[in-house]
Design a protein around this nucleic acid. Structure first.
Length: 297
DNA sequence: CTCGATCCCTGGACGC
DNA sequence: TGCGTCCAGGGATCGA
């Protein structure tokens, strides 16, 4: 499940491997996860990949303009790739057989192919340029590694939603997913159902630091490989060994030995320590009472 | 504004 | 062994 550290890992690998290469041709398989397949097929061939960067959970392949376009001043063209749950983007020798679920193949000018494989097709791919690209990027919130404490605080405290939902909301912060949300909440000792706006400044600061530290460490360890994440070279990440909450239901908390619990918050599994991360006073209970009161059989 | 529900999709886990 | 069923999960969308 590629989140910020996994996508950063892939972006760095691609930057090393394919920056400067030119795309010669494109072959498409299933295209239901692509915004506009015809545009991809038309726009990619002839363009050089200037740079590969991460934007939230997106890979941003910044493309040079086509050789034969003299005017038109089409600046900033990019291929946006979201890996979804099971997406993978990696350059391989053209001689290598295509893996199952390979949906996009771009032949590069060094004889390799940049291949996108994605069994579940929860990913997304789009070619965007100029104003459309800017517009798309504007939709997302701050990068948690770039935001200062002040901006982080404003974003977390400015909305009335549960902290878990806020961390997962890409318009609040871009790049955080289920794993790193749970891990940072565990580290900061905050219950996932707490209302973001009701956190004390001290807790917000703790969360901010926990999130940054965890993301940085995870990047160093090339992300978390749970089911099938592999980097560009086909290597799994190592950070899953350092998970303290995510996926540890029923196992002892690393701090207090209490069994880790799992609840659904914002529609997602949320793992937390019921001892270290206390339920907000009245939070859960009040909601339940309200629901029961409204229901009359 | 915020919430839950639903859908997308496939492979893996599980039960018989 | 093999089949069916259930589930995970990021994000879009819709109705409450």
């Amino acid at each position: 499940m590629p989140e910020l550290p996994e996508v950063e890992t892939v972006a760095r690998g691609l930057q090393r491997q394919i920056a400067g290469r030119r795309i010669l041709s494109v072959m498409l398989g299933k295209t239901d996860f692509i915004d506009n397949p015809e545009e991809i097929a038309r726009e990619l061939p002839g363009r050089a990949i200037r740079e590969v960067a991460r934007y939230g959970k997106f890979l941003l392949l910044r493309l040079a303009r086509k050789q034969d376009v003299v005017e038109g001043a089409e600046r900033d063209a990019a291929l946006l790739v979201h890996l979804g749950m099971t997406g993978m983007l990696s350059p391989q020798p053209a001689s290598e057989p295509h893996a199952k679920h390979t949906h996009v193949v771009a032949l590069l000018d060094d004889g390799r192919e940049l291949r996108y494989t994605d069994p579940r097709r929860f990913g997304r791919m789009a070619f965007l340029a100029g104003e459309r690209l800017k517009e798309e990027l504007r939709r997302f919130g701050a990068d948690p590694l770039e935001a200062g404490l002040e901006e982080f605080t404003a974003r977390i405290c400015g909305k009335r939603a549960r902290i878990k939902a806020l961390l997962l909301d890409q318009q609040v912060l871009r790049g955080v997913g289920n794993i790193y949300a749970d891990e940072s909440l565990w580290k900061a000792k905050i219950h996932p159902m707490r209302m973001g706006a009701k956190l004390r400044q001290e807790q917000v600061k703790k969360l901010y630091r926990a999130l940054q530290e965890i993301l940085r460490r995870a990047i160093v360890m090339r992300g978390s490989s749970i089911a099938d994440f592999l980097d560009v070279e086909g290597q799994p990440g190592e950070y899953q060994r350092h998970h303290r909450a995510y996926g540890r239901e029923g196992k002892p908390c690393f701090r207090c030995k209490t069994r880790i619990k799992r609840v659904i918050v914002a529609g997602r599994s949320s793992y937390f320590c019921p001892q270290c991360q206390r339920v907000p006073r009245g939070g859960k209970g009040r909601v339940r009472r309200k629901q029961e009161a409204g229901k009359n059989v």
